[in-house]
Amino acid sequence: MRMCDLVKYGSGALLPGLLLAGCATLPEPPKAYLPAVDVPAIAETVPVGTANDDAADDPAIWRNAADPAASLIVGTDKKAGLYVYGLDGKVRDFLAAGALNNADLREVTLADGTKRILVAASDRTDRSQPRIALFWLEGTNGKLSEIGTETFLPADRGSAEAYGFCMGGALGENDLARAYVVLKDGTVVESALFEQGDRIVPTYIRDVKLATQSEGCVVDDATQTLYVAEEDVGIWKVPLQTVLKAEAYARVGAQDGLVDDVEGLAIARDGKERAWLVASSQGDNAYTLFDLADGSMTGRFRIGGGEIDGTSDTDGIEVVLGDFGPRFPEGLFIAQDGDNAPEAQNFKLLSWQSIREALEIE
Results as ranks from 00 to 15, higher is better:
residue 306 G to Y: 03
residue 51 A to D: 10
residue 315 D to A: 02
residue 235 I to W: 14
residue 319 V to Y: 11
residue 83 Y to A: 00
residue 139 G to L: 13
residue 16 P to T: 05
residue 48 V to S: 01
residue 115 K to C: 09
residue 5 D to L: 03
residue 361 I to P: 04
residue 106 R to P: 09
residue 31 K to A: 07
residue 244 L to A: 11
residue 17 G to A: 08
residue 258 L to C: 11
residue 116 R to K: 14
residue 356 R to L: 13
residue 215 E to Y: 00
residue 271 G to K: 11
residue 173 E to A: 15
residue 267 I to V: 12
residue 59 P to W: 02
residue 301 F to C: 05
residue 257 G to K: 10
residue 25 T to C: 07
residue 166 C to S: 14
residue 207 D to Y: 10
residue 228 V to H: 11
residue 164 G to P: 02
residue 7 V to M: 05
residue 337 D to C: 01
residue 249 Y to W: 15
residue 51 A to Y: 11
residue 260 D to S: 15
residue 297 M to Q: 14
residue 270 D to E: 06
residue 46 V to H: 11
residue 284 D to I: 09
residue 232 D to P: 08
residue 69 A to H: 14
residue 171 L to M: 15
residue 173 E to P: 09
residue 282 Q to L: 02
residue 338 G to K: 01
residue 285 N to P: 03
residue 109 T to S: 10
residue 229 A to H: 09
residue 152 F to C: 01
residue 305 G to Y: 02
residue 240 L to I: 11
residue 181 V to L: 01
residue 107 E to H: 07
residue 149 T to H: 15
residue 3 M to F: 14
residue 259 V to D: 12
residue 253 G to M: 10
residue 35 P to M: 10
residue 305 G to A: 04
residue 131 R to M: 08
residue 127 R to E: 15
residue 336 Q to D: 01
residue 180 Y to W: 14
residue 158 G to E: 08
residue 44 E to V: 08
residue 102 N to P: 01
residue 290 F to I: 00
residue 13 A to W: 08
residue 315 D to G: 00
residue 137 L to N: 06
residue 243 V to W: 14
residue 15 L to E: 13
residue 304 G to R: 04
residue 9 Y to I: 05
residue 212 T to F: 08
residue 91 V to R: 06
residue 85 Y to V: 03
residue 161 E to T: 13
residue 9 Y to Q: 10
residue 93 D to F: 01
